[in-house]
Nucleic acid binder design. Structure first.
Lengths: 136, 136
DNA sequence: GTTAGTAATAACCTTTTAGTTAGCAGACAT
DNA sequence: ATGTCTGCTAACTAAAAGGTTATTACTAAC
């Protein structure tokens, strides 16, 4: 791998890969068709299985069940079983899920900007692209 | 949809959906198995098709070709054809692609933190999760 | 004239992801 | 006793994503 287009200190491929994997992990956690919607439904206060399913238009029980399991394994959601009354089960976001806030926020900010750009269909100005190289 | 767990001003479902779509767009752009790797390879200065393919371990010509087209359509990449010598074609990131920097940075930051957490396998403290609700 | 490098593309196959349908077991309401 | 609500789950199907192989057409070197 060559880093010849730039004369400042360059990251090594190993450092680059580390960052790539980290970003990949983050994408895995919030990616997919339903993850973000489920997180949002939970953030909105929906707690019970059927309640969550009703809140998310189009999701099947199978997928919701699988995704909740994944979220639980990754520490974003806790599953609380209440045996007292007609066995109700409540899902809740953990404090750890809050650490995703800056990530989600930046996705929203960029996405809104991108939508506006598409609406205006304006051409980007011609200057060099270097900022991405700086953070890697 | 109910917003009964919180007594401050709550976003409407419409506002929520707008943000969700925006985040979804952003995820689409950098999601998938190869997008981020291709963007990084380009940021590293790889310009030509086979050069990029060699830089990204395991990607097939078909997938690279499709992804480059997508990236071009979305305004992240320009395709320059040089007819002079053995027809070479160069791909370059546009200045617009730089707008992704904050997003990618926050993904990396979170991903690194998450990896450390998994390594330490430490339990999260018990307190309420509310920050996510704030940004939606 | 055969091999290698240039940048793809078509046809096809496999894997991954998601959707559909049906069912279960407990408890409550009519 | 029949229906309905609860929270799932298994089996199957469909769609999307990705991988493999072969082929195109041109040049240049051996």
């Amino acid at each position: 791998m060559a880093f010849t287009h730039h004369n400042g200190p360059r990251p090594t491929p190993v450092q680059c890969n580390h960052k790539l994997n980290a970003a990949g992990d983050a994408l895995y956690v919030i990616g997919g068709k339903w993850r973000l919607r489920i997180i949002i439904a939970l953030a909105e206060g929906h707690r019970r299985f059927n309640d969550i399913q009703r809140a998310i238009h189009g999701i099947s029980a199978r997928v919701l069940s699988n995704e909740l399991k994944e979220l639980e394994i990754n520490g974003f959601v806790t599953r609380n079983v209440y045996t007292d009354f007609p066995v109700s089960i409540e899902y809740e976001l953990t404090p750890y899920s809050d650490t995703l806030s800056p990530v989600i926020e930046s996705l929203i900010t960029w996405g809104e900007m991108h939508r506006e750009r598409i609406m205006r269909a304006e051409k980007p100005e011609e200057k060099e692209a270097t900022a991405l190289a700086e953070i890697l």
